[in-house]
Amino acid sequence: MHRFANPARFLKIANAVLPWAAGLSAVCFAAGLYLGLFASPPDYQQGDTVRIMYIHVPAAWMSMFTYSTMAVAAAAALVWKHPLAEVYAKAAAPLGAGFTALCLLTGSLWGAPMWGTWWVWDARLTSVLVLFFLYLGYMALVDAFDDPARGNKAGNILLLVGAVNVPIIKFSVEWWNTLHQPASVFRLGGPTIAASMLWPLLLMAAAFQSYFFAVVILRIRAGLAARRVQTLRLGQAN
């Protein structure tokens, strides 16, 4: 962990990783889109709408992945004053918000033809919606201070508070949902997922993941450069 703490060393590694991540993402997107849109069969129950899954499920996975890594980074920033951790959290937040928005949007577009409604107050939908609000809250909080260090610190505390709360929220809405309405039909296609659908799903998941790594490296570079700009400006002002 601490080997990557030095921004210069991190940049060296990140720049080596970047083309590979970008390339892998492009390849996986091409293969996943081909398999998902052309080569996989329509589902016997859901017809062609099942193809929405190849966007929806990876986006949902990434929304959770991004938040958990941000929370870990926030802990690292608060406890060990890890210089890169909060740059990472700040860089990843818009991506996480984007994935979450995508997950909600495609879920809505999937639900409209299959359930006959754009939205139900189902436990999963509700907890993902709350997760989206947490992302927005974090981004708004970090940007709300004239002193970026103060914003980062407040954001880190919020991320940890949210990390405690996300399981509680998830648990509470699941409970709330079963009290008020019967369990909704949340399942993937049939009883088990066929290999012809699993492959495009996994490829798209890999594509999303490598896309995330490529873009987050770009954003971390921008964040580090912004810090440098700030210290230079401070140096000039004095």
């Binding site: 709350v130 947490l134 809250g137 909080l141 201070f145 914003g151 407040a154």
Partner: peptide, 23 residues
Amino acid sequence: ALTLGARRSGVLLPLLVLPLYIP
């Protein structure tokens, strides 16, 4: 406490706190 000294803290506070009030 988190929004102390923030710009637009009046708008920010509900955005942070209301999702946490849900449980």
